[in-house]
C-alpha cells in the first residue's frame, strides 16, 4: 500500500440488500443505499437502530448474512479491495492504542507498513495533529487527553492514511457543543480539501444537518428515508418526524409534578 504517497480522492460506495443477525436478533433488515464519490453522507437514527453495525460492515469488520457492499464496483470484503482502496474509520471512542503515545498512534499506519523513514513519519504526525488543531500533544499518552482531543487525534490518525473513504462513528458523542463544532468543521474541511467520500453515523441533528450533502434516517434495522437535508426534514413519515423533532419539554415535567 502506497497510501501516503497518493493524494486522496473519493470512491463510490453501494450497499445492496444488507442483512445481519446476531444469534436470533436481526439488526439489519435489508439496507440499500449508494454514496457518490466525494459526498458527505450522513446516517441518522435512534440508538439501537443498527447504524454502528452498518458502519462496521462498510469497512469489513463485520460479515453480512446477506447482501453486498461495493466500493467502486468491487466487493469490500475482498482482500484486493482492502489493498487497493484506502479506508479509515474514526471510532466513537477514538480507539487509540492506550499503550502508545499520541504521536505513535497517529504514525502507527506508516510505521507498521514501513512507508516512510522515522524522520518523515515524525513530520507527518506533527502536520496531521496541527491540521486538527492539536499541538504539543505528540508525547502525551491517550489517557492524558480529553474526550474531544481523543476524537481529534483519531481523525489525525485517519488522515495519515490519506483515505478515499472515511467513516465516522458518532464523532460528536460525549463532546461539549464547542468541541462538536470543531469536529464538524474538521469533517467539512477534510472533505473540501481532499474530496474524500465521507459517511457519518450520528444522532446529533446539528452535526448531521450541518455537514450532510445527503442523509438517511434508519429505524429498526431499515432505511426509512434517503434524501437531501431539506427532503429529509420535510419528510412526512411519522417515525422520521418523531426522531428529527424529539425534544425535551419542560411543561411535560411540570404537568407530572
Amino acid at each position: 500500500m502506497n497510501a501516503a504517497n497518493n493524494s486522496a480522492s473519493g470512491v463510490g460506495l453501494v450497499v445492496r440488500g444488507l442483512r445481519k443477525s446476531f444469534e436470533d436478533q436481526e439488526v439489519l433488515k435489508g439496507v440499500d443505499f449508494a454514496v457518490q464519490p466525494g459526498e458527505i453522507f450522513v446516517i441518522m437514527g435512534p440508538s439501537g437502530s443498527g447504524k454502528s453495525v452498518l458502519l462496521k460492515h462498510l469497512i469489513a469488520l463485520e460479515t453480512p448474512n446477506a447482501g453486498e457492499i461495493l466500493i467502486n464496483s468491487e466487493p469490500v470484503s475482498a482482500p484486493e479491495t482492502a489493498a487497493k482502496y484506502r479506508m479509515a474509520l474514526v471510532f466513537q471512542s477514538g480507539a487509540l492504542l492506550n499503550s502508545l503515545t499520541v504521536g505513535e498512534n497517529v504514525g502507527l499506519y506508516l510505521t507498521e507498513h514501513r512507508l516512510k523513514t522515522p524522520e518523515e513519519i515524525q513530520q507527518i504526525v506533527v502536520d496531521k495533529l496541527a491540521a486538527v488543531g492539536l499541538k504539543d500533544v505528540v508525547d502525551k499518552m491517550p489517557a492524558d487527553l480529553s474526550g474531544g482531543m481523543k476524537k481529534r487525534v483519531a481523525i489525525a490518525r485517519a488522515l495519515v492514511i490519506e483515505p478515499q473513504l472515511i467513516l465516522y462513528d458518532e464523532p460528536t458523542s460525549e463532546l461539549d457543543p464547542l468541541s462538536s463544532v470543531v469536529v464538524g468543521e474538521e469533517i467539512l474541511r477534510l472533505n473540501q480539501r481532499t474530496g474524500v467520500t465521507s459517511v457519518v453515523v450520528t444522532h446529533d441533528r446539528d452535526l448531521a444537518f450541518g455537514v450532510a450533502d445527503r442523509m438517511a434516517v434508519m429505524g429498526d434495522g431499515k432505511i426509512l428515508i434517503i434524501g437531501t437535508p431539506d427532503e429529509v426534514n420535510n419528510c412526512k413519515d411519522p417515525e422520521v418526524q418523531s426522531f428529527l423533532h424529539a425534544d425535551f419539554k419542560r411543561e411535560s415535567k411540570n404537568k407530572k409534578l
Binding site: 462496521k56 479506508m87 474509520l89 471510532f91 480507539a95 492506550n98
Partner: peptide, 10 residues
C-alpha cells in the same frame, strides 16, 4: 483497539 488495527490493515 484491535478493530482500529484491522482498519489500518495491521
Amino acid at each position: 483497539e484491535i478493530d482500529a488495527l484491522r482498519t489500518m490493515n495491521i
